[in-house]
Amino acid sequence: MPHDPLYIRVPESELVWHPLDAVTLVYHRRSGQTHIVMEPVPQILSVMQDRAMDAPAIAARLAEDYELPQTDAAAIIGARLEELAALGLAERVSPGQADGAEGGP
């Protein structure tokens, strides 16, 4: 059975958050890019912290604080993670790398 891919997010120190009515603006210091994101993206990033996580694990953590759809929460989160990876705000890691990433060099 294929595993859900693991992701790790950029460190909090690289991001500047600014909520503005219905959206959240994120300035990414390292790329110099501004992203406009909506729920559940800020929540996903906030749950991930410095750990490598997959979509089901993030869904489980989010379910503690938010009402999530019963069926496809993990799929929705998986799609957002792919988008975050395309923007460079998260990165797919292999399980081996994830261990190293936890402690940091």
């Binding site: 790790i8 950029v10 460190p11 690289e14 390292r30 990165e91 890691v93 790398q97 990433a101 060099p105």
Partner: peptide
Amino acid sequence: QPDAQQKGVRLAKFSS
């Protein structure tokens, strides 16, 4: 080098 402060770029720790 991923992490050298003097030579090489400072990277986010997930990056190699």
